[in-house]
Amino acid sequence: MIIEILAVGLIISAILALFLDEVVYSVAALAGTFLFTALIYVLSGALYAGIFQFAVSVGTLAILFLSGEMLGEKPARKASPVRTGGLVGAGILLSLPAIFLSVSGTSNVAADVDFGEALWNLRGIDVVLQAIVILTLALGISIVLYERRKK
């Protein structure tokens, strides 16, 4: 059941990432897509894949925040709640096949190690913490750039 909810969140955030007009919101929705993907990997037993997905996606998002600040143009129209609601509704509709076909419990991925062991004994936590440091740095730089542009 949890994986079905994550699948719905994955599709909705993917649609929001593509069709939101503001670049920053779009990148934030893409962050949600990557996070949901990493959680699906972890819950399916692919712990290393989940940890690497998280780390790589944080790097990609850091670059995207910075380049989004450099390339981003003001959107022609303002985001309306109706349009956002429509996008969420479209996402729910598109994820119906995944829900009704029950995506959980059909993976072949092995789960030889548990999550705590992968994170602590096998040093997955190092990768995750480095990723968080990189993302924090990139967020800080993009906030500084945003404030400079406002002045």
Binding site: L18, F34, T37, S44, A46, T106, N108, V109
Partner: peptide
């Protein structure tokens, strides 16, 4: 251009999701 890049990222995510979930159980896929 950035939305095109995000689209490419989504396609790559879909490919890796498929790759991981259909991987062999011995961990080579990961």
């Amino acid at each position: 251009l950035l939305k095109v890049f995000i689209s490419i990222e989504l396609i790559a995510t879909a490919a890796t999701l498929n790759f991981i979930m259909l991987a062999s159980p011995n961990g080579v896929g990961q």
